[in-house]
């Protein structure tokens, strides 16, 4: 081992010790090693009890998000060399419940994601013989950016509103709601308005902009939320002034039966 770097890990082993604690490891400073490689090295060679999530090691699965020196980051895309001389402090993603070491409880996020119905909702009956549901490049462009979300939850860690207000549905969920709202094949806006206009919806956001700075895929949840506020406020006034003209809620889009 020529050069090394110190890694401090926020650990939590509830069956051994009730409180979280810091543990320091020394790992080789290999060129092109990501922080994730350092954690894998620790688990393989130094301490098999360390727990963390990862899968693809190439920035698309969204599993390896952690706080690196206080900033949310995908550890596979964050390189040791950038943190010389160290030490590097690694913590579980902020604003989440922690189950063990670097593993956070994703249930709350999954529930919030589901509450905005991020799937195609349509009353249109289509037969297999109708073929593909074609879209023009312009129609695709209207929402494509929002499809790039990998559910890594970095934006939830970056957003102070998520930390201050546990009801807030959060940046990624709203961006994914907009991914369907702006899809011309979808007609589920009304169902999503019900969540996004309610308490905990888009209007809890105070436009800090940290979500877009943290996003590794440049989804820009800030823009998605702001654009929703404009559309949502319009819908609110419509429902207030002339309820009949407001978009009537349709089905919830869950396919009950496929022939």
């Amino acid at each position: 081992m020529d050069k090394t770097i110190k890694i401090q890990v926020r650990r939590y082993l509830p069956e051994k010790q009730p409180d979280p604690f810091w543990q320091e490891y020394e790992v080789p400073l290999e060129p092109k090693w990501g922080v994730l490689d350092a954690l894998i090295y620790i688990k393989d060679h130094l301490d098999g009890s360390l727990s963390y999530r990862w899968s693809c090691h190439m920035g698309v699965c969204g599993s390896c998000g952690m706080m690196v020196n206080g900033e949310p980051a995908l550890t596979c895309a964050t390189f040791l060399e950038e943190y010389q001389p160290g030490p590097i402090r690694i913590e579980p993603l902020a604003n989440f419940k922690v189950l063990r070491d670097l593993i956070i409880d994703t249930d709350d996020f999954m529930g919030k994601l589901k509450s905005v119905k991020p799937w195609l909702i349509t009353d249109e009956k289509r037969d297999i013989t109708d073929g593909e549901n074609r879209q023009t490049p312009a129609e695709l462009k209207a929402f494509k950016q929002y499809t790039l979300c990998i559910n890594c939850m970095l934006c939830y860690s970056a957003c102070p509103v998520v930390g201050l207000n546990e009801d807030f549905v959060g940046p990624a969920a709203i961006a994914l709601a907009q991914r369907y709202n702006y899809d011309n094949r979808d007609s589920g806006n009304a169902a999503r308005h019900d969540t996004l206009l309610a308490h905990g919806g888009a209007f809890d956001c105070t436009l800090i902009g940290e979500c877009s700075r943290a996003c590794p895929k440049h989804v820009d949840p800030t823009g998605a939320i702001q654009r929703y506020k404009a559309d949502g406020a319009m819908e609110y006034w419509k429902r207030l002034i002339w309820p009949k003209a407001a978009t009537a809620p349709k089905n919830d889009g869950i396919v009950k039966q496929i022939d």
Partner: peptide
């Protein structure tokens, strides 16, 4: 999942980053 801890935000959270 015997238990979990939930770190809460400090009263001084807005002093931690220039953008905050």
């Amino acid at each position: 999942r015997p238990s979990a801890y939930h770190p809460s935000m400090a009263l001084t959270w807005w002093m931690k980053k220039p953008s905050y």
